[in-house]
Write a protein that binds this DNA or RNA. Structure first.
Lengths: 217, 217
DNA sequence: TGCATAATTACGTGTTTTACGTAGGAGCTA
DNA sequence: TAGCTCCTACGTAAAACACGTAATTATGCA
């Protein structure tokens, strides 16, 4: 098994230095370093890299843009995102851009090694802090909900109509689907808008998503 | 530290038996067992329970419904979901219903103990398989995207309009916001619909969410 | 610099949807 | 039976949408 070739991207030399000290040269090879995304892309054109370890917040070109570019241009390359805790809302973006893993800058030496090794093998690695942040988005938070004012339950028919609205159906199509008049669909829709406090169809989609009313969206 | 009082809910006696054998009586107390959600709720009315360990697929009342009910009625109670691998699409629903943790039925003895202990302490516990399933939803999958037919990039103005549409603004409101005519908003909107292949405002919201175009939704 | 192209702005006209008021029949329950 | 909610549906006016058209900037690039 050959050494894992790493490109280290971070705008702070100290961070890069710290990371290097974590990676013993018998197993990992820091093939190159870059200060930002632009530099990293240039290096990737020239050198053969296994794992890209990158910061998120950087001048010139940030890690999200870099990751997206890399995912498109070098699909075999694995990206491991490295970040501070307070950049939590970037996690989803980074994962969406194609990052295979995500760890915090104050991770342990062992965690860094494990993360790099795993992503290099094609697996994913998410630090437990990252996992919690993501899961929080799925777990109902004790935060005051936005549109809680007058929570009125929708009737069966109204939910049906709402569901079809969220599937991009027009009133006429909904009417045909349910064998009722388009005027009736309008009335139901109006009542749903009233009950939910939404202003238009776009609002209804958001409402349904917020509350995860339907599986298929 | 007293023993953790557990209510075990699963419609298969054998599973319950297996779980019990995993939990040493010095640390855990199986206060009661139930065959389904309905039974569980009755028991919860009578007995004092710390952690609810429940299956998802059950007759009468399933785990998701049970969990939602419990979260509402007994907020201090912690729910740990226990499931088969092939119920993966229920994970989000279960978490959304208020489950604090999620493990698979073929977990190790150690993992079960750890999960129960953690949720009892108010922390979360997600098995690595669960984490991966959730993360997959955030990671771009190599599946053929739905509306990839003629991927046309939106202009800056069009994105701006789309963003406001997704914020439930009416044409008139968008026009006022951007200091342009409502007719112009219509034109932009029409072009966006054309480019995205959507049929109406509801579709545009879905499109934006699918592609995570905007952070604030 | 200049021209081709794209982006932004906007209107005319006809259709569809929305806003708001109204209302009958079905079904359930006190 | 009276009262309630739900589902159904219409009238009218305003807003939004569909489709065609077009003028005024920007912008890239030869």
């Amino acid at each position: 098994m050959s050494k894992i070739k790493i490109l280290l991207v971070d705008d702070h030399m100290m961070i890069r230095q710290g990371l290097k000290s974590f990676l013993e040269p018998e197993l990992f090879e820091i093939t190159a370093e870059a200060n930002n995304g632009k530099e990293a892309l240039q290096i990737l054109e020239e050198k053969n890299i296994d794992v890209l370890v990158t910061d998120i917040m950087m001048p010139e070109m940030d890690g999200i843009e870099l990751c997206a570019q890399v995912t498109a241009d070098f699909p075999q390359l694995k990206t491991l995102a490295l970040t501070m805790m307070n950049e939590s809302h970037h996690i989803k973006k980074m994962l969406n851009a194609g990052a295979k893993g995500y760890i915090l800058k104050d991770c342990t030496q062992d965690e860094l090694r494990q993360a790099i090794t795993k992503v290099n093998e094609g697996q994913n690695y998410y630090s437990s802090e990252v996992t919690n942040i993501i899961m929080e988005g799925l777990t109902p938070q004790p935060t005051p909900k936005k549109r809680l004012v007058t929570e009125v339950p929708l009737t069966k028919r109204e939910k049906e109509i709402l569901h079809l609205i969220c599937k991009e159906y027009s009133n006429q199509e909904i009417a045909e689907q349910l064998f009722i008049s388009a005027r009736t669909v309008e009335t139901h829709k109006r009542n749903v808008l009233e009950k939910t406090g939404c202003k238009n169809a776009a609002g209804l989609v958001l409402y349904s998503l917020e509350r995860k009313l339907f599986d298929d969206l």
